[in-house]
Amino acid sequence: MKSVDIRNLSITLGHGAKAVKILPDVSFSVGEGECFGLVGESGSGKSTILRCMSLLLTQWDGKITIGGKDVRQMPLIERCRTLQMVFQDPYGSLHPRQSVRTVLHEPLRIHGMDNRQERMERAITEVGLPVDFLDRYPHQLSGGQRQRVAIARALILEPSVLLLDEPTSALDVSVQAEILNLLSDLRAKRGFTYIMVSHDLAVVDYMCDRFAVMQAGEIVEILDREALDGNKATKPYARQLIEASLEYDSAV
C-alpha cells in the first residue's frame, strides 16, 4: 500500500496578462492505508485535484508522488495499476452498450493479466454481486449495482490507491449505506489508501480519518475526524461549513 503526497499543485489557464489561476496552491499528504476526505462547496476544486492525480488533467504544475514515485514519471501501465478512480454518477460512467463482462475484461486484456475469468469472478463477488451479473448490461442494473460494478472495475487491476469522486451522492440513503459498508470492508480487507471527495460531512465522518476543507481552490484547513463532532475547526469557513452540516444533521 502506498502513501500519497501532493506538493504545490496549481493550475493556471491562459497566458501572460490574461492568465487565471484556478487552483492556487494545494499541498497535503495521505498516509498508507488512510482514508482522506476532501470537502467543500461545488466549484471549490475537490474533483479537480483527483483529476490531476489521475492525470485526466495534465496541465498542472507541482509535484504528486504516490509511494515515493512521481506520477508524471510513471509509465501509463504502472500508473493504472497504482491508482484507480470511481466516478460520481454510475449512470454516466458505464458504457451503455458494454456488458459487465466487457467492462471488466478490457483492463485485464490491456494489462495482459492471466486467469481472467477467475479475476472477473473474484472482483464481482468482492463487491457483493452474483457471478451471473457478468452478462448483464448497465440498463439491467439498479443505481447501487452500477456503482458496485464501477468499483469492481477499479478493483480489478488491484490498485493500491482508490480515488472516490462522490461515490454515493447519486444514490439513495439505503443504497448509500450498502456502498459505504462495502468500501469500508474493502479497506479493512485490502488496506487501500482512499482519497474521497464528498459534500456530505456525515459520509466523511463515517469513512475518513482526516479531511481537508476546501474553498475556491484552496485548502482552508485540514482536520481530524474528531473535530467534526462539536465543531473544533478554527478557520471561519470550515466552522461555518461544519455548523451548517451539524444543523442539518441535528434533528436526530
Partner: peptide, 28 residues
C-alpha cells in the same frame, strides 16, 4: 423516530451521522 413500519425504520438506521460512530450501517 417513532416510525412503526420496518421500511421507515430501515431508512432512518441507514443514515450515517456526524459523530455516529463507525459501526456497520444497517442495510435495508
Amino acid at each position: 423516530h417513532l416510525a412503526q413500519h420496518p421500511y421507515t425504520q430501515g431508512l432512518l438506521a441507514a443514515q450515517p451521522r456526524i459523530g455516529g460512530g463507525r459501526g456497520r450501517l444497517s442495510v435495508l
